[in-house]
Each structure stands twice: as C-alpha cells, then as structure tokens.
Design a protein around this nucleic acid. Structure first.
Lengths: 332, 332
DNA sequence: CACCCGGGTGCAAACGTTTGCATGAACATC
DNA sequence: GATGTTCATGCAAACGTTTGCACCCGGGTG
C-alpha cells in the first residue's frame, strides 16, 4: 500500500540498505548513487516510516510535553515555543494535559514513556520522588520545578515576587495578603517564600490565604477572606486568580486599586486587557519552552545532564496597584 | 533493556503469541492463563511497545491536531477537549502549529501522515484541493471548513453573525463595518456572507474593511479606516481583532461603545475580561474538539464517512455595543 | 608486482509486535 | 468408538527500517 524503502530500492536499482543509508547516513553513500536514490524516492513519494525506524533504532523522534491545563493561558505560548523548537530539529511533539491531577499525570507519563525519546514536564504536580523514579524510564526536563538529578528550567519567580513586594511597600502598603497556590506547585512555594522573606525585610506583615484552586473561581471565593483581614494589597498565585479576586472584591463593594491593590503572576494576555489592567510578574514562557526543548534534546542526544537553567522574571506595573486609601486599614 | 513481550512469555510460561493475545484479544485466551500472564506482566512492569504494534497492525494509535496558532486563545480549549477525548479512547495526540502559513501546514501534514491514524485540521488555511489531495494519505476531519468528500465539524458562525447584525440594527445602527479576516478562512467568509445578507435584509449598509491580519495589531491598525467611514458599529473577525480595534479607536479619541459599537467573534476569555467587556459570538469550541475526535475515530475505525456536523453559535451581549450616539453619522 | 587500504555496496539479522495457520486436547454426537 | 467441533495454544512469517559484517574493486605504497 504505502511506498516503502523496498520500492525505492527497486526503482533506483540498489539494495534497500543503500536507500536507508542515503536517508540516514548520507556520507556513507556515493554522491551520484545518492541523488539517483533521492530522485526515485521523490518520484514515488517515499517517506520513511518513523515507527519502523523507531523499532530499529530505539529512537522515536517524538517528544512529550506535559502540562497541567492546556486551557490555562499560561501554557499555550510555552507549548507553542516548545513545539516550534522541536519541529526545527525534526521531532514531533505529543501534548498532554493532566487536568491538574497527579494520578493522571503519572499514568500519562507511563503510557507515553515508551513512545517518546524524552519529555518536558511543565509545572508538575508530582512528588519529587515519583518524578525521579519515572525519570529512570524516560529522560525528563522539568520546568518550574527543582528535582535533584534532573535538568531543570526555572523561572526565577522569587525575584519578580520581591519586586512586587518592593513595589507595594513603596506605595505605602504594610499589610499584604498572599493567595497561596497548589501546595504541590514549586512556583507557589517560591512565591510564598519570597514574599515572606521580602515582607519581613521591609517590616511589613504578610497574611497567607488559601490555598484555593488556581482558577478564577478560586480567586473569587478568596475575596471574602481577604476583605475580612487587614490587608490593603494582595499577591495572587497567578493572573487568573488575581482576576477572580478583583471580581470578588468588586462584588463585595471594594474597588481595585482604590480599596485593594492586586498583583498577579504570569503576565498572560489577560493581564493586559482586563479591567483594571493587572500589575503582574512577567514570566519568560517562550524562553522556557524553547530552552526546555534544547536541554531535553541535548540530554537525549548526548546523554549528558545539561544542568539547570534559570530565567529572569520581572514585575510589570499596570493599573491594579496604587497607594492604600487613607482609611483602608481602619476598615472592618 | 526494556521489558518485552518475550520476557513476559518466559515469566508466565506461555508463548509470546499468547501474551500478545492476552493484551489485544482477551477473549481468545483462557481466563486463567490470561490472569497469569497479566500478573507476570505487572510484576515485570511490561508495557506494549506501540511502535512495534504500529508496524505490525498499521495502526499507530496516534492522532494529529493541527491548528493555525496554539497561542491564539481560540484554540487551547479546543485542543484540550480533543486531547481529552482522544485519551479516553487510548489515543495519543500530536499537536502542531502552522503559524498561519499554508506551506508549513502542508509540510506538517505530510511529515505527520505516516505517523498518525488520522488528523483533525482546525481552521485550515489550505485550499480545498490540497486538503482533498492530502486526505487520500491520512483520514482527516476538518473543523470550520467545508471540504466536499471529507467529514466536517462546522460552527454555524453565520447564525451568530445574523444575531449580531439583528442586535446592532435593533440598537439603531444603519452603517455597519465588517473587518474581514484571512481570505483563506472559511469562518471569515461565512461571517462576511452572513453579515451582508443580514444587513441587506434590514436595509442597513455594510462596509467591508481589510482584510487585516487576525491579530490585535491588525484590529488596531484598522481603526483609522473604520473611523474615516460612516460606520457606527463594527463586526470584527475575532475577539483579538475586536480588542485591537477598540484600542485603536480609543487612541483616535473615540469611545466604545459611545461613539462606536464593536462586536467580536469567538467569546474567548478575553471577551469577558477586557474593557469594555465584549459583545461577541460564542463558539462551541469544546464541543467541536470533542466531536471532531469522535468523527475522526469513527471514520478511522469503521472506514465510514461520518458526514458533517454543525454546531450552534450564539451572540453574547456585553458592554461593547450600545445605540449610536445621535450625531455619530454626521461625524467625519 | 604483491600488498594493503578504504570507499561503496550487498547481505541478513535484528527491533517488538500481530496474526493466519497448524496442532492438540477435551468433549459431544451418532 | 469413530467422527466432528470447539477452544486454547504454539509456530513462524510479516511489518519497514537500521546496521555489523563481508565483499569487491580501484588505487596507492613499498
């Protein structure tokens, strides 16, 4: 049915092994034979069968990219960049979504393991132990997660968080709430840690709230708890949560940034467009997607551990932060 | 290295063919043998090698999903739904991005063809002829594109567009601009056609503008042309364009919806959050992703052509539309 | 001239499955 | 008790590549 290497061999009058070499080890075959083979292949519309090749070489030329939620606007640009970079090197990529569930994630990785040469694990919710264990079956690169023994691409969200706290303190805030994210999230821990350290340094009080789901609803429902506390500013786990919080605060009759300053994390396109526009920590997602694939491919092809790469983040100031209103602290 | 069917056979004291059948044709093997085999497989951590299986069965258990731009917020929910549905049926999915370029799209499909059992082509920019031709190599289902001879999932954007025009006319608008999208886009043509027909029916004038790139920048730069015309309302190709247009109009000193009403298409999350919130045509992306995979799998497994499915769209009215200001038509 | 070297090619085994066919056992039928 | 039927299993060929090895041939070296 489909045209195989054998057809090309017959058509060009050489042995299949020569055709094979013409495609995968060009230097081993005489230049004129090669062009003859290529011409025949072209004429017949031959394309190497990657499954067969995989069977023989133990290389699939496929990669996996595993994220928590494709529809979360944080991920698509990262996926896009990763996919583009992989394609550049002639790899195809499976994209899968774990629905934020560790069990699903684990099963997914297992089912993918034999089928890919490596996988990019973005914001994994798995325990370090499990990741390390799975990492014996498939080469991994983890993004936004620190796992010892594995190559990591980290976005230095702590730095952006410190900038955010600096910014809020400079505006005059002394009580800052932080909406904590999923406890399994490295990013969430980093934000929390950096916020605490930074607040302490400034002599400001930090009020942890949550954890809530990392969604708009999660932010919305956190509004009541924030409003009942002394905080005049809040640091949200991500833009979606920040937005939900803003809507929740408005529903409670508070205005942002008048009564409450809000800063998000991720700098998704939503942050630029929502009302009010969102002060947020910009994350280098494109660089992470591309870099993650680079590391992964380096690891896969050379076997070396490429180590850890850290990328900068920075605060983008927009409309959702302002000085606290004079009477704000006295509220309640 | 990896554990194969042979290891399982040895471990459980049966022939490899029995192990194979235990996995892929359970009813052909005695129940007790089967459990013994399964136990051995479990003990050894055996997973069937899909590449080998593919070689032998001519089925890869992989599907492709091809979209114009992963980062365009229209696509991620569709991809997510498609991926989830595929996974449910034990298929893995390759996701690829064509960067809105027909050449890339074609090459992508060719390189994927041998490797998947079928592909979902979303909002393809290819000519019908080329699609039909490629469709001889791989089973396709096309989304938002009508190609004769191929199963299609169509979002009835014409209906939503008519609702939009009805809505604008009801508000009092008589001059409506339409920002046309990429000429290769079926959706763009549908919108244009439905708008014309609907405007004519109401005796309103329709003013085509563009085509501009289907991006925020595209909308932004279209603002000048719209402002210099008589239109008091505009129908944009998608939410991103609508948003860009709003920003462009604001930059020209016009207020939305005061001086200009704007309606988008897609109902992406941006529409809910931008300022002003966007009146837009809601697209059934999740249903399309899931349904597309259903059709594709039906086609792949049975060989039948499952025909065409049409999904409803509906207008969601928000803040970006209002009656025209009295003097608006006299502007210029 | 004998020798070796190396580039170019063919040969065949391997990769891990599936599957049509053959075999054999158990059992029912007349 | 011979014959047929069914069920479970083994056997081996196939799927489309890659790759170590053997071979041939032309040309350089001593």
């Amino acid at each position: 049915m489909a045209v195989t290497i054998r057809d090309v061999a017959r058509e060009s009058g050489v042995h299949v092994s020569t055709v094979s070499r013409a495609f995968s080890a060009a230097h081993m075959v005489n230049a004129v034979t090669r062009t003859r083979v290529m011409a025949a292949a072209e004429r017949l519309g031959y394309r190497p069968n990657r499954a067969a090749r995989a069977l023989s070489t133990q290389r699939t030329a496929n990669l996996g990219v595993i994220v928590a939620d494709i529809a979360n606007p944080f991920f698509p640009p990262l996926i896009k960049a990763a996919q583009a970079q992989a394609r550049e090197r002639d790899y195809h990529v499976f994209v899968a979504d774990t629905d934020e569930r560790a069990r699903v994630e684990e099963e997914l990785i297992r089912s993918m393991a034999k089928q890919v040469d490596g996988a990019l694990l973005v914001a994994s919710r798995l325990s370090g132990r499990v990741i390390a264990e799975l990492g014996r079956d498939v080469p991994f690169v983890v993004v936004n997660r620190r796992v010892k023994g594995l190559p990591c691409v980290l976005m230095d969200v702590a730095s952006g968080t410190r900038q955010a706290v600096d910014h809020l303190v400079a505006l005059g805030h002394r009580d800052i709430a932080v909406l904590t994210g999923p406890s399994a999230s490295w990013t969430a821990q980093e934000i929390r840690g950096a916020a605490e350290e930074s607040a302490a340094r400034h002599g400001a009080a930090l009020h942890p709230v949550g954890p809530n789901p990392p969604t708009e609803e999660g932010g919305f429902s956190a509004a009541a708890e924030v409003a009942s506390g002394p905080a005049t500013a809040v640091l949200a786990y991500n833009d979606l949560v920040a937005l939900g919080l803003i809507r929740g605060a408005e529903a409670l009759g508070l205005s942002v940034p008048g009564d409450l300053s809000v800063v998000g994390v991720d700098n998704t396109h939503i942050a630029r467009h929502c009302r009010p526009t969102l002060t947020t920590v910009d994350m280098p997602v494109v660089a992470a997607g591309r870099g993650g694939i680079d590391l992964l491919l380096h690891r896969v092809t050379t076997g070396e551990d490429p180590g850890t790469v850290t990328l900068d983040t920075r605060l983008v100031v927009r409309e959702s932060t302002a000085p606290p209103s004079s009477g704000a602290s006295a509220r309640t």
